[in-house]
Write a protein that binds this DNA or RNA. Structure first.
Lengths: 205, 205
DNA sequence: TTTGGAATAGACAGACTTGTCTGTATTGTC
DNA sequence: GACAATACAGACAAGTCTGTCTATTCCAAA
């Protein structure tokens, strides 16, 4: 009977991470106390503090796990498209679906930067690393089509559009932010010599 | 002796607002308690609760005042430039200086949206209104140069770039985010038929 | 069946939170 | 000088927070 009930057997550590992420997403980091996380996850306090030395460390671990699943999800979706042209659009379509999902509440990394402004705070390095990762992924989609400097600049600009779209969707509830960002992205790509004919948003006028 | 000592005489309400803004900016909204605001501003608790019925209401008032001063500052700076071409660039230069100022800690409205995710929270309407105001200002710079629909879309896209730059500067400390956004903005403007020859960032390569 | 590790519940410390309350002091105006 | 408005200090309630502690229970392997 080693693994009969996967749900029960699932690592306590993982249960804590999942529960904490859901609560932090719905209410913010500071608004949620560890007691609430414990209650929702059905775990004892000492268990939490065994795996995570402090609440800040828990938040950092939550963000590290999220960074991985976010990128895995995005990259897996993008790789279902064959051509480079489709893949650019896929990034924005993926964001569009994210914005329209029920649990969407902005970017947890941007939110963390907002809640923990202190420069040396534990979570800040994780936040910065995530943004670098996403930008590097954008650059990888442009790989070998542009000279290095221009490629990195364009990747950074596309990331600017994505982050702006996230913020717009979060702050004003503008659910079409991803589509708007895509239109701008297509113009930037074309100006860099990468013309896109396909429209990744089928219902668009 | 009506107005001899303007500093002392200054409206208690205004002192509270100024102090609260500075503290919220440095540490976040939830991280700062009213006691800290009272201590720093040298005001009694009952005075604060006389002017503001709750901490949430205080935060909302802080944001309303900031919305006004933010837009007044931006618009005043932009209006020191004569030509429409220069004015577009001025928006991004203004943001560049903001990002490089010591007290920069991201956009207080985005931060508020991050800290108060509840849809119906008091501050959310103020946050959304601010973003609409800025976007409307961008649209006003495009006025009569484009057909209405295209103008609003371009204004929204330029706002996306600005918000993305704010987030980038905040989350990763990328101090050149405004310049990067401007380069992208110039391409979008050109594609819309508004060519810009002048370079608002003089030191740029 | 015994043993050891892991998780449990729950109390606890000490500090902090928002908001209310009382009573006193200062202030400008009549 | 008397009056009303304003702000003051500081106690207080009732609840929250993080993190530590003890003592008990479960479970699986030897």
């Amino acid at each position: 009977m080693e693994k009969t009930l996967d749900f029960v057997m699932r690592d306590k550590r993982q249960v804590i991470l999942d529960t904490a992420l859901a609560l932090f997403r719905s209410h913010g980091y500071r608004a949620i106390g560890v007691d609430r996380i414990l209650f929702e996850s059905g775990v004892a306090k000492m268990t939490l503090y065994k795996y995570f030395p402090s609440k800040d460390a828990l938040i950092k671990s939550v963000l590290e796990a999220l960074d991985k699943s976010f990128r895995d999800g995005l990259e897996a979706f993008v790789e279902t498209f064959a051509t480079p042209e489709e893949r650019f659009g896929a990034v924005f379509v993926w964001h569009d679906r994210w914005f329209k999902s029920d649990s969407f509440n902005g970017c947890m990394f941007i939110n963390a930067a907002a809640e923990f402004p202190e420069h040396g705070h534990l979570v800040r390095s994780t936040v910065a690393r995530h943004k670098r990762h996403v930008q590097a992924f954008m650059a990888s989609l442009l790989a070998s089509r542009l000279e290095d400097g221009e490629r990195d600049r364009l990747a950074a600009q596309l990331s600017l559009l994505l982050d702006g779209a996230i913020v717009s969707a979060q702050a004003t509830g503008e659910t079409d932010a991803a589509r708007l960002a895509w239109r701008a992205a297509a113009i930037l790509l074309k100006a860099a010599g990468i013309g896109i004919e396909v429209n990744p948003f089928p219902a668009e006028a």
